[in-house]
Nucleic acid binder design. Structure first.
Lengths: 227, 227
DNA sequence: ATGTGTGAAGAGCTTCACAGCC
DNA sequence: GGCTGTGAAGCTCTTCACACAT
């Protein structure tokens, strides 16, 4: 077995993919780890190492072929064919997601949307009809859904998450700052804005001190935070 | 100088804070690292270590006083008085943020909101009047803003970010999957949904294999992802 | 010359394990 | 007995530095 792949490496694959899509649009067909590092704000070595976990994609003395690399990464991430996403909760956030124009380019397609408000049920947004959340389980089973996005009020999140787990959903992206207590075989990621805001506030209010420290030649105390 | 504080520790402070608020509501006045670890899905040792960077808050044989600990963490994060936040872009996401009921409990207050659509300018949401983004710089300077939230269309993000930087803003939370290329003294965090979705898809589709691995007694290959 | 792939060194973070205090 | 605080060990991820390919 090859040495295990860092979780961080997986997290960088999609940003690489996005950068490569841009490069294709610009007509560039070869890129070095140094140039890509500039674009992504990373060290070139880590880019080479990231790719090396999956194979030898580059040519020494030349660099990487942009479109080959892009396709390779898309395959590693499994984004072809498009991943089918179900959205639960069509409030402001759910609405924004349904209207987000780039999901399909990026490899995702919202194919189901649910809400519990009768005024919303039956409405169609961007080709997706909002359905009654009562039929959640039935509908999830008939479509093969890869990922559920939970955009319901915080109070409803645990109940829905539990229903999703029971239905066999394997991945949940939640907008509730959760401790959703899911079994280990279900992957959950929470978008926790307050935590990110708190972190930003903490570091930005200490920036004065770290500037002083860096004048003294000490090393940076915190790494640059970027998701 | 004390040993440097891990970035990860800072990222856990707010979840601790939130958990402690809940405990207070439940009337609990003492908690051990073991119980808190259970609530937050962490190892007790890391909780003790996290707190130890800031002082000796616990009593051996007893645990931590819930309300003292909560107040201490709130102070470390600098969340009293409330941090003043400016929101740029009142689309669906901006709207959702303005309506989010818990910000003030959590230490944040949106005091300014901007948009460029004349139909929105002048409207009042949750006590905040939407202003013309033309006056961004002037208004930011007159209020003392700790954090800006960027919820504008992707195409507008770089321009606005640049204007914020020029105005002296120190922290930006952006909803555009960005490489915002800001100077180092400005802290930027991007909420990048597609990257998180890609990560979830990657791991959830490989779950079968890691189950097999764990039957063979090998260690987990990826840590649980939770922001 | 230019730029990849990678072992080894280094940095950062977590967990262990236990002394010390309640 | 119960639980904290912490050095040391262990693990993970990043960076260095250079052999090797074009």
């Amino acid at each position: 077995m090859k040495t295990s792949i860092p979780n961080e490496t997986i997290g960088r694959l999609f940003p690489y993919f996005r950068a490569l899509m841009c490069l294709i649009k610009e007509g560039k067909d070869t890129i070095s780890s140094y140039e890509l590092a500039d674009l992504c704000n990373l060290n070139p070595a880590i880019i080479r190492k990231d790719f090396s976990y999956f194979g030898d994609f580059g040519k020494r003395g030349v660099g990487y072929n942009v479109s080959n690399l892009m396709n390779t990464i898309r395959n590693i991430l499994g984004l072809i064919p498009l991943k089918r996403v179900a959205l639960i909760g069509v409030g402001n956030i759910g609405n924004a997601l349904l209207l987000y124009p780039n999901f399909e380019l990026e490899g995702f397609k919202i194919v189901l949307a649910f809400d519990n408000q009768s005024t919303k049920i039956g409405r169609k947004i961007n080709g997706v009809t909002i359905e009654d959340v009562s039929y959640l389980e039935k509908r999830l089973k008939s479509h093969k859904i890869h990922l559920c996005i939970l955009a319901v009020p915080e109070s409803a999140a645990p109940v829905i998450a539990h229903r999703l787990a029971k239905t066999g959903v394997k991945a949940i992206l939640s907008f509730s700052p959760c401790q959703l207590a899911m079994p280990d075989n279900i992957k959950v990621t929470c978008v926790d804005l307050s935590t990110e805001m708190a972190r930003l506030v903490y570091y930005s209010s200490r920036e004065i001190f770290s500037e002083i420290r860096s004048l003294q030649g000490k090393t940076e105390r915190h790494k640059k935070v970027s998701i």
